[in-house]
Design a protein around this nucleic acid. Structure first.
Lengths: 302, 302
DNA sequence: CAATTCGTTGCATCAAGCGTAATAATGGCT
DNA sequence: AGCCATTATTACGCTTGATGCAACGAATTG
């Protein structure tokens, strides 16, 4: 038995003091109303109405139940209504995960502008260079810089290419390297989200060269890695925007520019939504617009 | 679709973070759980969970709905539980209708004793000599003194016989009447709940006599009628307990004692309950016990 | 790599809800 | 006073919707 419908029917009868009138309001038959009410009475083991064929009156138990349950039903419907209207409008809080290096450079401006445009959306940002489990950690969106994702349980959207270059400290012995064969495992510092080793697959116009970096040192933080390079500890494969300043100030230099690593992308990851909630879509669109048009990421690449 | 069951299922899944675990708890299949949740999602037009085959996680909309709706469901169930337990125990308020004359004599003591025995039951007494519509006026119980009831829409219970006698003022010309034929219409004062006329059907051992009283005066209040009789205004057919004092003080006398009117009864009327609520049954039983055993109505008849 | 577990979906079965209509009761209206 | 309309209930078929089973794709564990 549909208990909820029974209670709604009961309330209609209680208000209208008539089974027939309730049936008309609910666009059903008196038979249905009668069954619903007597079903509820059996379920609650209480007589709710005193009835003759011409009069219907609440028992005191019925009156007290009606008074008790009516606001509950109203609240129930209100909750459904709230959820429905909330999901359609861009309101609420979104949890965003972002990588440290990229986040520190791009997010301050972006979040300020976003807050101006969408004052109804609260944003909470967790910056980390680990690969988070979007689902388990309850993120609405994760910003990552990575190669093609192999995770089938998330959906993602490429925003733009992130140029990576091989760098070494100016004037160091590493800066003189001009052939991939000169790259020794101990000289290659690893950049890996899990702090493990990193495979470098370098392609020139005609050849390719593969080696494992990070045997002696690796980190999940690009800025730390850049500082290690500056200190002459070795060579790293880093997004250009991270080392932009150091390049400009000539503290580090690009090596082997004709050998290119595989493309990696600035990518947005979402939990496997059937369709994106409005507030997440708002942030997502704003992010893409901001990064590609308004204050393009290339700002960091030049 | 049973919306309530869907919400309950949703809450189980939300709590256990698993469709399969929820199915086990609810003693059903995962298929049923899956359908219930996706049905609710369609109904609310919101995605409640983000799911892969190995992980289930609430969306923020789902989390907010769960937080919102869980106390509502709890309240809903609590209301049902309250009603159920309330109806079984003798608690609450009962509305009683009682006639004036009888009520003034019997109720003060009775209600005091009842209050001692059932402190949980609040009693509200309306004293009136009109015939009230028990159902429309929302009484739980009506005490009446009347002949056999013709109302099919109430249930009733005879408590005891109420002896009625014909009375006249001592020393008046009416006191000398010794044959029914001497009763003139103008001398017979009516006692009628509706303030109308009253049919007297008198029976002796061998004969019967019928006449209409109340042509010149009638009332629905026995005490008023008794005072009219004392004042020598005529003859009335009254319950003995009303005129007990006046008889004892010899202000009025019984006439035609061998001619008896039809029996009338002290009767309890109830709304057409399928079965009597505990609190009403408690009052009803107490009333009967009190009137017939402890302080019998015959106290007023002797 | 095999095996298990998970959520979803198609399919066949079945029960529950529905409207119709008949019934008894009751109040209004003429 | 009696006819008529309206009311709540109940029995009867039918249809719709729910349910359980099984197969499937996906993903983790050993």
């Amino acid at each position: 038995m549909d208990e909820l419908k029974a209670v709604r029917t009961f309330l209609a009868v209680a208000e209208l003091q008539s089974f027939a009138a309730a049936a008309r309001r609910l666009s059903t038959t008196t038979a249905s109303v009668s069954r619903a009410v007597s079903g509820l009475e059996k379920h609650l083991d209480v007589q709710l109405f005193v009835r003759t064929t011409r009069q219907v009156s609440l028992t005191s138990a019925g009156a007290s139940y009606a008074a008790r349950i009516a606001p509950v039903i109203e609240d129930f419907d209100q909750a459904a209504h709230d959820i429905r209207s909330q999901s359609g409008s861009a309101l609420g809080r979104i949890h965003v995960s972002a990588p440290m290096s990229m986040g520190m450079r791009v997010l301050p401006d972006l979040l300020s502008d976003f807050g101006d445009e969408f004052p109804g959306i609260e944003v909470s940002v967790t910056m980390t260079d680990e690969f988070v489990d979007i689902i388990k950690e309850n993120y609405d969106l994760a910003i990552r810089i990575s190669g093609p994702p192999d995770d089938k349980s998330t959906i993602w959207r490429k925003i733009c290419l992130v140029e990576r270059i091989l760098v070494a400290a100016s004037g160091s012995r590493f800066a003189k390297i001009d052939t991939p064969n000169a790259l020794t495992a101990s000289a290659c510092l690893g950049y890996d989200a899990n702090g493990g080793e990193e495979i470098w697959e370098l392609r020139s116009a005609t050849a390719k060269h593969s080696l494992t970096a990070g045997r002696t040192f690796s980190t999940n933080n690009g800025d730390l890695l850049a500082r290690m390079v500056e200190n002459g500890k070795g060579i790293a494969l880093l997004p250009r925007f991270i080392v932009k300043d150091a390049l400009a100030k000539n503290r580090i230099v690009q090596i082997l520019p004709e050998w290119r690593p595989p493309d990696i992308w600035l990518t947005l990851y979402y939990p496997p939504y059937e369709r994106l909630p409005a507030k997440v879509a708002a942030f997502s669109d704003f992010f893409e617009r901001h990064v590609t048009d308004i204050k393009p990421l290339s700002t960091f690449l030049d």
